[in-house]
Simulated assay, not measured.
Amino acid sequence: MSSITIKSNKFQSTWAYLQLMRPANIVTAWADILLGYAVAGAVTVGISNLNFMTLGWLILATTGLYGGGVVFNDVCDAQLDAVERPERPIPSGEATLSGAIALGTLLLVMAIIAAAIVSQLSAILAIIVATCALTYDKWSKHQTILGPLNMGLCRGGNLLLGVSAIPSAVGNHWYLALIPIIYIAAITAIAQGEVQGGKKVTGMIAIALIAIVIGSILSLGLLPEYTLLITLPFLALFTALVLPSFIKASINPEPKLIQMAVKAGILSLIVLDATIATGFSNWIYGLLLLALLPLSRFLARLFAVT
């Protein structure tokens, strides 16, 4: 075998394992951490090397949590994907099952260690998120109600992981985790039909949950530390990106339209996080967070999102 062929095979293998990690989705998890960072008040307490180091460790932690969680999702679905999605890395043979298990384990362990460097509370939150992710992968994703709720808990916990940049802030802002819980529940609910098609009633429930999310953001204006007015352009962008695709998938729940709705919903997590973060910080920070969107969309062209 020539050296060129060996290098080509190594590249294909590396690419396959990167596909398992869903890089575009990981960027949206970074946005959760940046939102939590703003909610904790770390943006306004002053810039220091300690703040940047804390933020870096938390971003590394969420990279491991999300990457490890989705890798184990494909591990648990290996037999099903062999029938329904044979092009995926494991059933196609581009990645091995044992290799995927090793990668997923490494990522989750890395995540917990990185979180522990920040604080004991951060480590506990990372363990909770990892447990919720594995529970979803193995069992609850097949449950109509518990599946969306479980996945939402992963995202809500990830937001609180960002808030734990200042541990004392978690107790004061824990309720904000309900927003990503509801939003991810909407995406997960409509995603249940992305292979064989869905039901109109599921789409309507998802749209109702999106409406609750929008209403919840508007209600944050009641908080003395939240400035609603500067968030409205961000909220309008979020609504324009999400609602049309969800409505189309609800009216005509075909697999292709559902997959488009799921993709739009996942990538719009960045816009959702930027919207909320703006109110807790300023519009400049919101724009910086929103700058993750082009990166996530670029990666979505290279790697699968769902």
Score class of each variant (00 low, 15 high):
Ile276Thr: 13
Ser250His: 05
Leu241Trp: 02
Lys263Ala: 12
Asp273Thr: 00
Ile276Gly: 00
Leu267Gly: 10
Gln192Arg: 12
Val271Met: 10
Asn252Thr: 03
Ile207Glu: 07
Leu222Val: 01
Ala211Trp: 06
Leu237Lys: 13
Gly221Thr: 02
Leu237Pro: 14
Gln192Tyr: 13
Thr231Lys: 05
Ala206Glu: 00
Gly203Ser: 13
Leu223Trp: 06
Met204His: 04
Thr275Leu: 04
Val271Arg: 09
Gly215Phe: 04
Leu235Val: 04
Pro233Ala: 12
Lys256Thr: 15
Gly193Gln: 01
Leu257Phe: 07
Leu223Ile: 03
Val242Glu: 04
Thr188Cys: 11
Thr202Asp: 13
Ser281Tyr: 10
Pro224Val: 00
Ala186Val: 09
Val213Cys: 03
Ile187Asn: 05
Ala274Trp: 01
Thr227Asn: 10
Glu225Asn: 04
Leu220Asn: 09
Val271Trp: 07
Gly265Val: 09
Leu228Cys: 01
Ile266Gly: 02
Val242Ala: 07
Ala208Asp: 05
Val201Asp: 00
Ser250Asn: 03
Gly215Thr: 08
Ala240Val: 01
Val201Cys: 01
Phe238Arg: 02
Ala208Cys: 14
Phe246Lys: 05
Gly203Trp: 05
Ser281Met: 12
Asn252Ile: 00
Ile187Ser: 03
Ile230Ala: 05
Lys256Asn: 15
Asn282His: 07
Ile182Val: 15
Ala211Tyr: 07
Ile187Glu: 12
Ile184Tyr: 04
Thr278Met: 12
Val242Gly: 02
Gly197Leu: 00
Gly215Ala: 13
Ile214Asp: 04
Tyr226Asp: 04
Gln259Asp: 12
Leu220Phe: 07
Ile214Leu: 15
Trp283Leu: 14
Ala206Ile: 02
Lys256Trp: 09
Met204Phe: 11
Gly193Glu: 05
Pro244Asn: 10
Leu241Met: 14
Lys248Ala: 15
Ile284Gly: 06
Ile276Trp: 07
Leu243Ile: 12
Val271Lys: 06
Lys199Gly: 00
Val195Ser: 11
Glu194Gly: 09
Val242Phe: 03
Gly203Asn: 07
Val195Leu: 00
Ala189Tyr: 00
Gly198Cys: 09
Gln259Val: 06
Thr239Glu: 01
Ile184Gly: 01
Trp283Pro: 00
Lys200Tyr: 02
